[in-house]
Design a protein around this nucleic acid. Structure first.
Lengths: 352, 352
DNA sequence: TTGTAAGCGTTATCAA
DNA sequence: TTGATAACGCTTACAA
């Protein structure tokens, strides 16, 4: 039956049916102005009737572009990244690009597989939240010639645009807030040292402490992996000490979730017995008890910016001087949102 | 310089360098046993040295397969779906498949764009959480010949495998729990009627009520869109009534988040003044106050099953009798997890 | 074991 | 305005 769903026919098959050349159909579809109105209509009609769909793979091969970009995130379950996905998607689709997402699951191996896939698919560009693979590994992946921007975490790969948070400032805002409230023993749960976010958030913490004349005690900081479990483990370790801190800064929302479980198990009441503050204004941050004081990131803006930088790079590809251009770096300021998980230390403890 | 990053060379270029035919290189890479050990080594060496990467687009075109499957979810920010993504990814990558994810953002237009993209990319299969597009639209997308399984929501598309929750049972468990506690006026916030999840969850609710001799009051049920905002709006509407319900069943985690905001604004204390229960055991469900009683779905299992069904379909493609095979349907039972957001109605309000 | 050549489904160049 | 024809980069009969 004509117009049947099922198998899709090819350009040549359709051409045969219409008794025109394949080139004509292609033109009617891609450069309608180059074809006579009558022909155009005849072709478009047939395309409709037979439900012809161009084969994107063949087209990509011929054209050398896919109009699709890849986005690899470190952890799709983390609402920070899923928000980024949405922002990037919105921005890119406005410009006619599609985006496909890969989840690296905070694993370097999966990260490499994902990047290799995207390079192999010959996508037009990649937005990448680095998970910590070796740079040399990354460089072998054939990513060299493909436009790329990194978001949230910088790998140091050259040629890539970069969209970052001012992590040091974020920690400083948090620590200053706690300092003002009167805390001195402030614990910190950070991310892996191999990641810029992991390192810089600790640095900001240390700097803010020292600026206030409080000496840095490395035993008060733990390095997790940005996943829930490590937040739980490190919170337990930090809070089981005899001289436990009166406040805790956690470097992302996932580890905060784990820390909350730990605090509950330890029977600590917030904020009376412990003040907590974390990076990322997760959507549940206002629903927990007490609502969380957080260092929020401008996700929407960061996502859009990454999209814009990538588009610029794609546009510049192959143009004179493109190779020599300095990759752009954009750093965004975090915002402290004070809610009720932070208060002055040493409040009457009740029953303790 | 040799081995430089940057531009990737092609098979023919490499062949020229090595003074062998392109076919030989291709064989050394894909069917090493068909090539002499000496040659194999020489080729592999060169591949390494020059960092040659096959062009996946060309390969796909030639081979007619991509070893990649697409996953389109209704809302990537919803932790239900991001968990599904992870489960699917895990299962598929074990079998050498890569997965790319597209977010439909609960929009039919984006859903169609995403599916069209995946079809065009000639991925080997698609896993799809339906957002409610017209079936006829979907059928035009050229999806006809591509293996597909639907998850969470059934579109009615023929030929697709299906992985679902027993939604009616889920609602029944919830309602029976509330009934047992003594609730009679139970409000419900469901999803769109155009989706199976939206409809069936209301049906289960109605059935359970009627089975207990409680008459169904349609003014107590609202149809949202599974997004946070509509949960907020509907909760406000339901709870501002003079004769407001003593309990609320919410059909997913996102709308529950919205409802929680509404309840807080209304100053209702849980569970004393209102019992709430929702579908999806979101990761934050235990961190809110009070911890939420939920109808949990076996995400991991559902994701893996979807992957398995898809793999079966892919394997069967083009084989005799493949066309006639009945698509598989798998329905999973939900589990009621009682926490502290539900209790008996009409508790003394003051001083507690 | 290796090479030659055809072909996957498009699009772009060149003539007609 | 339309039609041949040659790529795009790879895999795979078929020949040598």
């Amino acid at each position: 039956m004509v117009g049947e769903v099922g198998e899709n026919l090819t350009l040549v098959e359709l051409a045969k049916i219409l008794n025109v050349s394949a080139a004509t159909i292609s033109r009617a579809l891609n450069r309608p102005e180059m074809v006579s109105p009558a022909m155009r209509e005849r072709v478009l009609d047939a395309v409709e009737r037979y439900n012809y769909r161009p084969n994107g793979v063949a087209r990509s091969l011929r054209r050398g572009e896919t109009r699709t970009v890849g986005l690899v995130v470190s952890d799709i379950k983390n609402s920070f990244y899923s928000s980024i996905v949405q922002a990037v998607e919105d921005a890119l689709s406005e410009h006619g690009y599609s985006v496909v997402v890969c989840d690296a699951n905070e694993s370097r191996e999966k990260e490499q597989r994902a990047l290799a896939l995207l390079a192999e698919l010959k996508l037009d560009g990649i937005i990448h939240a680095f998970s910590g693979s070796d740079l040399s590994e990354l460089n072998r992946l054939g990513l060299g010639s493909i436009p790329m921007v990194e978001i949230d975490r910088a790998s140091g790969m050259k040629g890539a645009g970069t969209v970052l948070l001012d992590n040091r400032l974020g920690s400083r805002l948090a620590v200053e807030h706690l300092l003002e409230l009167g805390h001195v023993r402030i614990g910190m749960i950070s991310g892996p040292e191999r990641l810029t976010t992991g390192r810089e958030r600790v640095e900001g913490y240390r700097l803010a402490l020292e600026a206030a004349g409080v000496s840095f005690d490395s035993s008060l900081v733990g390095f997790g992996d940005f996943q829930e479990r490590s937040g739980y483990d490190l919170a337990k370790r930090l809070l089981n000490r005899a001289d436990r801190p009166t406040a805790l800064l956690v470097a992302n929302n996932e580890m905060m979730a784990g820390a909350l479980t730990a605090l509950r198990e330890l029977g600590l009441r917030l904020p009376d017995e412990l003040s907590v503050i974390c990076f990322d204004d997760a959507r549940w941050a206002t629903h927990v008890d007490p609502p969380l004081t957080v260092v929020a990131q401008p996700l929407e803006e960061m996502g859009r910016t990454a999209a814009t930088l990538l588009l610029e790079q794609i546009a510049a590809t192959g143009r004179p001087g493109a190779a020599g251009r300095e990759p752009r770096v954009r750093v965004f300021p975090p915002e402290l949102i004070v809610r009720r998980s932070t208060s002055r230390p040493g409040r009457p403890r009740k029953g303790r």
